[in-house]
Design a protein around this nucleic acid. Sequence first.
DNA 1: CAAATGAATTTACAGGCGTAATCTTTGAGC
DNA 2: GCTCAAAGATTACGCCTGTAAATTCATTTG
Lengths: 122, 122
Amino acid sequence: MPISEAESVIMEVLWRNSPLAAEDIVAAAAPAQDWQEATVKTLLNRLLTKKAIAAERDGRRYLYRPLLKRADYVHATSKRLLDRLFDGRVAPLVAHFSEQRKLSRKDIAELRRLIEEIDDAR
Amino acid sequence: MPISEAESVIMEVLWRNSPLAAEDIVAAAAPAQDWQEATVKTLLNRLLTKKAIAAERDGRRYLYRPLLKRADYVHATSKRLLDRLFDGRVAPLVAHFSEQRKLSRKDIAELRRLIEEIDDAR
DNA sequence: CAAATGAATTTACAGGCGTAATCTTTGAGC
DNA sequence: GCTCAAAGATTACGCCTGTAAATTCATTTG
């Protein structure tokens, strides 16, 4: 089962640092999203039933940690978009942003470095 | 109002070729998606209320055409993903696919060409 | 003109999602 | 041991989405 966007906010917290108690997750996620504590609890439960996270007892509370790996989530999500919009390939996406003049100087420099790196590796 | 994924399938048909009658859109989209004609009709109506397409009478039927531009849709959708997962930038996405060894030879060649092109333009 | 046909509009309905309030359980303190 | 408070689990609810059936409206044909 895929995780939703709101759920991914919780995941990002746990990917950054885990295991964490619900309290800490609330502290990390709720203010920026303008969520109530109850909302975070709901999302934690949905993530549990989706097996995207696990909880282990720690005294009276639980500590939560990711089961789903960020790289896997990022990959699945990105690939889906590439498939839908760019014929499944990365280059057309870059071309699109290039055409729209939406590549920062930093992006261009980093892309150049990446290409060189790839070339060197072979 | 953002258009949904199912709706975007209809949009793709119209971006490829328009204006089209509902019948043609059904013919182009329904089989691959395994949709009934009624489903396509629903999606057309939702796109109309979202102002993503327009319809003009042509005798007894309507011809539909996009109002939303593909480049705008693609851009909004892609930017959203980049913002959520890659700090809003293109390069980290490319880096991710590179790390996962998910860049095709073709991709690499095209990326190299793109970078050169950008460099030449300045 | 009436009936049939084809096209469009309306209605339907379950499941997921965002957002939360409420209820229940369990450990902590008196 | 009993009560209270905190944490977790359950329930809620409206909206969007995917999927489609039913209904209405306009046209063509007999």
